Amino acid sequence: MTDVSIAPTALVTGASSGIGAVYAERLAARGHDLLLVARDRQRLEALAADLQARHGVNVEVLPADLAQPADLARVEQRLRDDADIGVLVNNAGIAMHGTLAEATGQQIDALVALNIVAVTRLASAAAARFTQAGRGTIINLASVVALAPQMFNAVYSASKAYVLSLTQTLHGELSDKGVKVQAVLPGVTRTEIWERSGLDVAQIDPRMVMEVGEMVDAALAGLDQQEVVTIPSLPDAADWQAYIKARDALGPNLSRSSAAARYK
């Protein structure tokens, strides 16, 4: 059995391309065995063979569509049962182009199923297993649109705000149980998600677009620095702390026995 105190197995969702594939490569380079989850078996197997050859780690593939309840349940159960898994990279997600009014019910359901339901179910399973072990790491991929929803459409932005909130709450629940939790908030990152959502990343100001390797390296550096929230493009961490301080200042007045005088 893997000694999880050294380099536990990492389960990476959405691992066949983009951010997930780079996380898999970087974690393999750090000595982690891998369990790679995505829909595309062929791409997963090609990645697994490459990582095993280059880094000498064990890589297992688990093809699954996490938007499908049966597939999600299989991956969730594996997380609950496999004591070798000590890292979850909750990366799988989709974007959607257009306004909420233009979206179909099917599009909305698909995004919520993957970006919210699957992320939550897998985080819950990991939290249960890692708490029992007294160690583990949960990395949830959110987005800067969690903080600036006007940058993108309603459903996607709201789903990433949910992931940020989920992660911050999980940190409060798990920080004294030996479990690390991190939300990663990338800006525009050059991956296939843009093409799949019907957008052309080439039309975006190149000064706003980060290469995926740079983004993941920054995210892992933030994890090493014990950050709960990592924004790879943010130059000054004090800006995030000021944001949190301003939010916390609202606390004493968020729930009171009477309405504010300005409403009377």
Rank of each mutant, 00 (worst) to 15 (best):
V4G: 02
T9G: 02
A10I: 02
S16M: 12
S17V: 04
I19R: 08
A21N: 01
Y23R: 02
L27Y: 04
A28E: 01
A29L: 07
A38V: 08
R43V: 09
A48E: 09
A49R: 13
D50F: 09
A53I: 08
G56C: 11
V57Q: 07
L62V: 11
P69W: 04
G86C: 09
G93S: 13
G93N: 10
M96Y: 00
H97E: 10
Q106Y: 04
Q107W: 06
L111G: 04
T120A: 15
Q132L: 12
G134F: 03
R135D: 01
G136V: 00
T137A: 02
I138D: 05
S143W: 03
Q150H: 12
N153G: 14
A154V: 14
V155L: 06
Y156C: 06
Y162E: 11
V163F: 10
H171P: 03
L174E: 11
L174D: 10
Q182G: 04
A183K: 00
L185T: 03
P186Y: 06
R190V: 09
E192I: 01
W194S: 02
E195V: 14
L199E: 13
V201Y: 01
Q203K: 15
I204D: 08
G213I: 00
G213M: 06
V216W: 03
D224H: 10
Q225P: 03
Q226D: 15
E227Y: 01
E227L: 07
V228A: 00
D236A: 05
A237V: 11
A242Q: 13
K245W: 00
R247E: 07
R247K: 05
R247D: 06
D248M: 11
A249H: 01
R256E: 10
A259L: 15
